[in-house]
Design a protein around this nucleic acid. Sequence first.
DNA 1: TCTGGGGTCCTAGGACCC
DNA 2: TCTGGGGTCCTAGGACCC
Length: 423
Amino acid sequence: MIGLVDCNNFYVSCERVFQPSLEGRPVGVLSNNDGCVIARSTELKAMGVEMGTPAFRLQPCLQRGEIHLLSSNYELYGDMSARVRMVLEEGVDEVEPYSIDEMFVRLEGLDDAALTRQARSLYDDVRRYTGLPVCVGVGPTHTLAKLANHMAKSSAAYQGVCILTADSDETRYLLRHTPIGDIWGLGRRLAERLALLGLRNAWDLRNADAKTLRRHHSVVLERTILELRGISCIAMQDDEARRRIMVSRSFGRATGEWQHLREAITQHAQHAAEKLRHQRSLACALYVFLKTNRHRHDQPQHTPELVVALPHPTNDSRPIIATARRALARIHRPGYRYMKAGVMLLDLLDTEHHQLSLLDTTDDTEHPRNERLMTTLDTLNRRMGRNTISFGLPTANAPWKLRCGNLSSRYTTRWGELLKVKA
DNA sequence: TCTGGGGTCCTAGGACCC
DNA sequence: TCTGGGGTCCTAGGACCC
């Protein structure tokens, strides 16, 4: 069987671990730049605040003190996620992180009673050791585990743990009451198209002809149908290496100035290179883009982009930054007010399997030195905080820097920001 | 005034090969 | 008039996820 451990209102819960006064109150966490709501506490959801609501629309509630809005603190959330993973790894053999707040676990060779005990103990352990509330869903396939988790979350009767078998009355009942759009992997588009065929809920789909639907739609749909029947089609993924690495941010204020754009791209290229080294990969190419503010219909729009090859496969920040800057120079057009910039690393290779290029002119003795330099850089930045050492010194108060008006402390990753306890 | 930042997989169609 | 039958690789774009 496969379990899905999903943290409840993850970002909000991370904040509450260190600010217990937020417990029981309507709390939202905002996207970068404090732009819109990306996580909501149960209380905030109950007030009718939708995902993606722009922060400015909530100003009245905020000023009346009815709600709390926090800037997002990814350093904290990332670290809390790693802790959840460690707790799960104590309890089960195989953990597959699916997103920052969800992890699949493999639960094999257990009878019904043992399965229930195991799921319950994962539920208790994560809460006890990290302070985060979770729900646990268990099923014969990823898709059914996902559904079970949804049930555990939405009905208090389950007390946070729901176990579904392929062919029980309970499963049948739940499938009948699950709209197609709520099934993992099937979105709004497909739901609309399937509705035309009279298929409305998961039970209809489970009993539909998988081969025909594959022909008219896609193999993804066929797999989902089989998964709903309890036939596992989605493998656990063990390789953690990403195939693309993207770093992009909206700016705090729009800017068209070359110097500012160059700083933003430099910073993004640096962070991307850091991520690249962390997963032990090399990039062969990169992609750079700029965007103007698409919500400003009164201003001229420009969204240039460019893919360029790197001189050779590398994870060294310097050629990556240099290439990104050259690409920027080619796409930047004066006279536009840009609102977002980004760098994506492409065609990633595993460091181990890399073949040195005949055309690579770097002296062989340079490679180990460059590697040591990058390793030192990463170690310092990891220990002392990101950007302790960086290429180029960004302008103070540059317009491209993020706005984050209500950022909580990085309680678990910065010595200077530890929680203070008053006696 | 103010609207996020990442990812994945699949498909269709073009270019090209024998 | 008639104009094969495979195959691979690459890319853009759609759909979906959190």
